[in-house]
């Protein structure tokens, strides 16, 4: 087994968190879930993650701000945006960080395999 991939999932909806983490755990990935951006930043300062799956609509600090803050701490961090808003438009700053349309997923996903595919694309695992 190669080094275990560590995924940080940020979402304020516990069932979404639960579902995603369960799915990714089943896929053999290590997940840490937090329900806010601030928590996520704390986690990121203590631990290292390969991919961060982040919701946009978060209490206080939204997903975009979080991504910006997080990228200041860790460069080269991969982000997957998992949002409930169909009108979400990728901000330019995020695009500069290498985040593209393929990294954005709208809730609800019929099949979480698309997320797995995205992680595979980012990490190669």
């Amino acid at each position: 087994m190669t080094q275990q991939i560590r995924i940080l999932v940020v979402d304020d909806d516990p069932s979404v968190l639960l579902g995603l983490c369960d799915y990714l755990e089943d896929e053999g990935l290590h997940t840490v879930s937090v329900s806010s951006g601030e928590e996520a930043l704390e986690k990121l300062e203590k631990e290292r993650f390969h991919v961060v799956i982040v919701d946009i609509r978060l209490p206080r600090m939204d997903g975009n701000d979080f991504v910006m803050n997080a990228s200041r701490i860790y460069t080269g961090m991969a982000f997957i945006i998992h949002t409930g808003s169909t009108e979400y438009i990728l901000p330019e700053q995020l695009k500069k960080l290498g985040i593209c349309k393929e990294d954005v997923f709208n809730k609800p996903l019929d099949d979480l395999d698309v997320i797995r595919e995205a992680i595979r694309r980012k990490t190669g695992v």
């Binding site: 069932s15 579902g19 409930g84 809730k107 609800p108």
Partner: peptide, 25 residues
Amino acid sequence: AAGMAHEINNPLAGVLQNTQNALRR
């Protein structure tokens, strides 16, 4: 409806993800 839909998407994601997980498991 749009406002509502946004709010519904999260629970729906919960339903669908967890149902998927349940079926998988």
